[in-house]
């Protein structure tokens, strides 16, 4: 496993929406390689018959009743928004369509 390139880091940074400098791209490529080498030992253990643990405490079916509870006061939310207008959050123009 491993051997992470500068381009790999650039792709990951793009997925993670972080603008990285050329210096950071190179630094992280090296550091991630070291980290992945250090953690590589986990591939030695845990065969296919071992189930994964996603939750420390094995409970199921935790549900809420379908009851309306008070929402936040709009001003208290928009006051701390980077920008707001007409009761809405103002965000820069969106390029991608979803």
């Amino acid at each position: 496993m491993s051997a992470i390139s500068r381009d790999d880091v650039a792709h990951l940074a793009s997925l993670a929406r972080i603008e990285l400098t050329e210096q950071e791209l190179n630094d992280y490529a090296g550091q991630l390689d070291v980290i992945l080498t250090a953690v590589a030992s986990i591939s030695e253990v845990a065969a296919d018959d071992i189930p994964p643990t996603t939750h420390a405490v094995p409970v199921v079916n935790v549900f809420r009743e379908d009851v309306v509870t008070p929402s936040l006061d709009r001003d208290s939310v928009l006051d701390h928004a980077p920008a707001a207008e007409d009761g809405r959050f103002r965000v820069p123009r969106i390029l991608d369509e979803e």
Partner: peptide
């Protein structure tokens, strides 16, 4: 794999 180690 890490989640499996968690099980172990």
């Amino acid at each position: 794999q890490a989640q499996k180690v968690r099980t172990l």
